[in-house]
Amino acid sequence: MADQHNDLPRFNHPASIKLLLAVFGSLIGLTVLTVATSAVWPESNLPADLAFPVAMIIASVKAFLVCAFFMHMWWDKKFNIIVFLSSTLFAALFIGLTLLDTGHYQNSIDNFPRNEVAQPPE
């Protein structure tokens, strides 16, 4: 997708303006879509549980577009891509395991009478 610039060093891959504009257009479109969805969803008959995943999917598509083209990942070294994506893997691990654990003991917090928690000094 990059412009042909044969005189450039091999680590230099300028992206084409058309591509960048197209990506920008799609990003704006997706932003409008996600705002519109959130405005319409509660009034519609669509299942409420799906609103959040849909918003996240749209965000992830946007993230993909930014990563791939604005951040040149499409042309980057595989190693750099692995490095970056590994961060999300570890973040997911952190979120996932913590969520799993707190979910198990959440009852013991919810059932604890709040007025028994030592109150902050005024």
Partner: peptide
């Protein structure tokens, strides 16, 4: 701003 940044890099 991301678009203009990408254009700046280009």
């Amino acid at each position: 701003s991301s678009l203009t940044m990408a254009l700046a890099v280009r």
